[in-house]
């Protein structure tokens, strides 16, 4: 099994799943430095359902990518699920992502030549599981998102809402500590979007799944417990959501 804890400090058992301190992300574009995130201090509790909001270019997706370990901060510290992500190598980050994070994309990004079942099974190849164990996990995940009857369908044979359900199943099949979603309803119609949000709320309430979700839509954000708003790379609001 993977061991990504060998070289970094531990905060396992901590009630906080994300702790970032003075987090910064800069890009260099045409010789000019673009400050996408500036001095972000944020702590998110384990089991929370958090919505990241803000206008386009505010840095919310970049912040989500930093939480997922698919991008690196320019400065500051970032502890996620017990790991200081700034100290992990590229390979260690990949191993950490395989076990600790599930990521849901706005455009689903399923592998088109694999069936729904195979798409969900894909991340499990990185875990020491028998074929039977993989089958059990995939079936459980497909059941959880209510798409078991479509397991043999290819993505092109599914609706957008169904594709997103498969993508969510793929994200939770490894039982990650943290589920990150980048505008998960952004490409769906109103009915499908409501259905996906209901599913995420269910995962949070029934499984205690920690969820951080980027969204533009205020009505989508009402499903979260906490709202973090960014503007021009800075954290401008951090409030509890009243249901």
């Amino acid at each position: 099994m993977q061991n990504t804890n060998a070289t970094t400090p531990q905060i396992h058992g901590s009630s906080d799943i994300i702790v970032c301190d003075n987090l910064e992300k800069h890009y260099s574009r045409g010789g000019e430095t673009v400050r996408v995130l500036e001095s972000i201090d944020l702590t998110l509790a384990r089991g929370a359902f958090v919505a990241l909001m803000g206008p386009s270019g505010s840095g919310k997706t970049t912040l989500l990518n930093l939480f997922a370990g698919i991008d690196r901060p320019t400065a500051g510290t970032l502890m996620v699920d017990g790991q200081d992500l700034t100290k992990l190598s590229r390979a260690q980050l990949a191993q950490w992502r395989a076990t600790s994070v599930g990521y849901v994309f706005q455009l689903y990004h399923l592998v088109p030549v694999l069936t729904a079942y195979e798409n969900v099974e894909l991340p499990l190849y990185l875990h020491e599981l028998s074929r039977a164990q993989r089958h059990e996990r995939v079936s459980e995940a497909l059941e959880a998102v209510g798409i078991s009857d479509r397991h043999a369908h290819y993505p092109r044979q599914l609706s957008g809402g169904q594709e997103q359900r498969v993508a969510i199943a793929r994200a939770i099949v490894t039982r990650p500590a943290l589920l990150l979603a980048d505008e998960p309803t952004g490409d769906l119609d109103r009915v499908a979007a409501a259905s996906i949000m209901q599913l995420l709320s269910q995962l949070h309430s029934e499984r205690g799944q920690t969820i951080v979700m980027v969204t533009h839509d205020p009505s989508t954000a009402t499903h979260a417990q906490r709202l973090v708003r960014l503007d021009k790379g800075q954290l401008v609001e951090d409030v509890a959501v009243l249901s």
Binding site: R90, A94, Q95, W96, A98, T99, Y103, V111, L126
Partner: peptide
């Protein structure tokens, strides 16, 4: 290229 990024996001290494 996008699919490769998706695989990397899932934890697949170089």
């Amino acid at each position: 290229e996008k699919e490769i990024s998706v695989l990397q996001t899932l934890g697949f290494r170089g």
